[in-house]
């Protein structure tokens, strides 16, 4: 829709775009300028000024404090993402091309899991994890994220596979291929774009997650989101360290967004029933 605009209209439009750009960048400005200040320069009075000299002491300090948690987050996010995507892909494949009596109802029952507020399962979940001796451990948290990630990954793959013509599966069946062969030779190879979207979506969500992380881990296994709130909650308010910590926490998912923006948006729109 390229309507013709008068110059005034154009100016107004750009003014609106710029004002909102400022609004969206304001926290980034605060984050960056504060994290690059030395502790002595982080006084409340100069909060809005750029640092007079670049200092990486805040970033270094935050990195030193958060390094184990960064590793925890990676140990958590990578396996959880891969497992939930693989299982979701298999589920989506079966639920779209190997339907059986009641499979649609089953799909609805699986989907329900992504709408629940996780508070409603939280306390029994903690008890259960203690019983099976996975409480406070990263494998435990991986299990939790894989299970609660299944509804969304199943949905995303099912929607993707539904566009694959039924005739393709039928033809392969006639040729004697079984359910696994058809997945391995036909569906899996064509699902790479879908895997990228799901990987990015799951990576971002699990990295950013807080509720399970704070209730199911101990000091050794805390992911970075929990460590950041602890850093911020400490008594000495070293704002440069806190803001540096926030940058470090945000960086991996921001990088993913910058590099794979298109896929990120796809996942967001596909997973839009989740939020």
């Amino acid at each position: 829709m390229n309507e013709k605009l008068t110059t005034t209209e154009k100016i107004i439009r750009y003014a609106v775009l710029l004002i909102f750009a400022l609004f969206f960048l304001l926290p980034m400005y605060v984050l960056l300028s504060t994290s690059l200040k030395s502790f002595s320069e982080v006084s409340i009075n100069t909060m809005w000024q750029l640092p007079t000299a670049l200092s990486f002491s805040g970033l270094r300090e935050a990195f030193k404090k958060l390094a184990p948690n960064i590793m925890n987050s990676f140990y958590l996010v990578i396996p959880a993402t891969i497992l939930s995507a693989l299982l979701g892909s298999l589920n989506g494949y079966v639920l779209s091309h190997w339907k059986f009596k009641g499979s649609d109802t089953l799909f609805a029952l699986i989907l329900f899991g992504m709408f629940i507020p996780y508070q409603s399962v939280l306390f029994p979940l903690v008890q259960f994890m203690q019983q099976i001796n996975l409480y406070g451990s990263i494998p435990g948290l991986i299990l939790v994220h894989v299970v609660y990630g299944l509804p969304i990954t199943t949905l995303m793959f099912r929607n993707y596979y539904q566009d694959v013509p039924e005739a393709l599966t039928e033809a392969a069946k006639v040729d004697g291929a079984n359910i696994f062969n058809i997945y391995r030779h036909i569906f899996f190879p064509i699902s790479i774009p879908s895997f990228v979207v799901v990987f990015i979506w799951q990576f971002t969500n699990i990295w950013n997650e807080f509720l399970f992380a704070v209730t199911l881990t101990n000091t050794q296994s805390q992911p970075i989101t929990v460590a950041l709130t602890n850093l911020a909650g400490s008594q000495v308010v070293e704002w440069n360290v806190q803001m540096s910590g926030a940058i470090i926490t945000a960086l991996p998912t921001l990088l993913v967004y910058i590099i794979f923006g298109r896929y990120f948006i796809k996942g967001m729109l596909a997973g839009s029933v989740k939020g």
Partner: peptide, 8 residues
């Protein structure tokens, strides 16, 4: 901001 954690 959609890519960032609520915690950040």
């Amino acid at each position: 901001p959609m890519a960032i954690s609520f915690v950040v």
